[in-house]
Amino acid sequence: MVDMVNGPALALDGDPLPTEREDDGLVARLARGDQAAFDALVAAHQDRVSRLAYRLLGWSGDVDDVVQEVFLAAWKALPRFQGRSSVTTWLTRITINECRSLRRRWGRVLHREPAETGRVCSPAADSRMMNGETLGRVRRAVAALPVRHREVVVLHYLEQMPIGTVSDLLGVSANTVVVRLHRARAKLKNKLSDLMQE
């Protein structure tokens, strides 16, 4: 059983996050203005940032522009980055802020349905797979959550971050994260109870 407050952070799809040692090396090189270090930073974190942005924006749309803006903000903030937090945490905070800015600019969560992903499930598996209509319901339910609730849901359930890590990222107490999760769960259960298998 993973310690949900202090356990290790692991992305949902099993990709290991860049290690602290790798990040320390990068921070030192970035501080020296090593251009190749920025290339390495982008290569190491691009997929993770893309996946996080995709989830924070409701699994819709092309997140290329958002990812570009995240790394552009990181490039501009490099002179001020002192390595007090890990590069992973730093980039995650930037990604969260960029997604918030995008939602403020557009005034809504992007609701464009994702393109067909080429599902190959057999008929026998249909009962456990999710069709487009159900996915749409779940997405709308998550999109209807207040921004602060949606963020904790994505970070804790989908990014598999412990409560402590989520509270550090968002700059709120662990208790606040727990309360937001509790309220988000109640709202999701209210809207999607027929889809949940207890």
């Binding site: 949902l12 999710m130 996915l135 997405r139 989908l158």
Partner: peptide
């Protein structure tokens, strides 16, 4: 949520 994430 994880099923939705996978289906997306």
């Amino acid at each position: 949520l994880r099923q939705a994430d996978w289906a997306a």
